[in-house]
Simulated scan of single mutants.
Amino acid sequence: MIDMALIEKCSDPSLTPAIVEQFISAAGSDDPLAISVKIGGRLVLVPKPADPAMGVDAIRNYVGQANVRIGITQFPAGVGITDTSQLTPEIFDSCSNLRMGTALFAKVARIVTKWYGRPTNQEVLPQMVDDAIYAWRTGVFEGTRVFEAEDPGGATFINGKSIKREDPVEDSGLTHTAGGSEGEPVEKMDAGKAGIRVDLSRIGIR
C-alpha cells in the first residue's frame, strides 16, 4: 500500500488523497521500478531493473512502439517527451512518478467530468472515478485519446468536493509525443444518455 505521507506530499492537489489511493490501488503498482510493456495487447516480459538507470535503458527500445507503463502510477512512458533520449531515471522516482502520474490522471478526470456534464451530485462520484481509472488503463474514453487530448479545465470530479481549476492546466509538457497508441478506440456514446450509461466494455478487464 502506498504511503499516505507520500500521497500528501507529491500528488496533484486537485485530487483528494482517498482518490489517489484508490487510483494507485486499482491501476498502479507497489514497486517504483515496475515496468509493463504491451504490444498489440500482448504483454512483453521485461526483466526487472536493478535501479532507475537500468529501468530507463530497459524501456527506451519500446517507447513509441508499444504501450509502456512505469512506476507506482504506471505512468505512460513517452507522454511529455519528443525523443527517448529525454527519458531520465527521475521518472522512476516515487515522488516524481506520483506527481506526474496524478497530474495526468487529474486531466483524465476532468475529461470524464466534462463528459458527465460537471455534476454536483456526490452519488455519481464512484462511477466517475471508475471511468477515469478505466480511461487511464486504456488511454481512451468515449472515443477520446485522453493522454493526447487538451485539458478542458473546470472541476476535477465533483464540483466543490475537489479543488476547482477554472482554466485548462498546463500539463508540464504532458502532451502526446513519442508514446504510441495507449489503447484501442471504443465506440462513442451519446453524452445525453449519461444518466443511464451502461458500459459493457469493461467486462473481463483486470
Rank of each mutant, 00 (worst) to 15 (best):
V44D: 02
S172M: 10
G117I: 05
P185A: 10
E21L: 13
C95I: 05
E150M: 09
P13D: 08
G55C: 07
T16L: 15
L6N: 09
E142K: 10
T138P: 05
D167M: 11
R202G: 14
D190A: 12
G183A: 10
D167W: 07
L200V: 13
G40E: 06
M128S: 03
E90Y: 05
D12Y: 08
P17F: 09
R42G: 08
Y116W: 15
C95D: 08
R99N: 12
S162L: 02
D93Y: 02
M100F: 11
S96D: 12
L15H: 06
I72G: 00
Q22R: 15
N97P: 04
G139K: 07
S29Q: 06
E21Y: 10
D190E: 14
G101R: 01
P13C: 09
V108W: 01
P32T: 12
K48G: 07
D151N: 06
S172F: 13
D171R: 12
V146N: 04
R137A: 04
M54H: 10
G55K: 04
R206Q: 12
Y62G: 00
D130N: 13
D190F: 12
V112K: 01
A18Y: 08
R118M: 07
I133W: 04
I133N: 00
A58M: 07
A27H: 03
K114T: 11
N159R: 14
V20Y: 00
G41E: 09
Q74I: 02
A34I: 00
G55D: 08
D93L: 03
A103Y: 00
T144M: 08
E166G: 01
D83R: 14
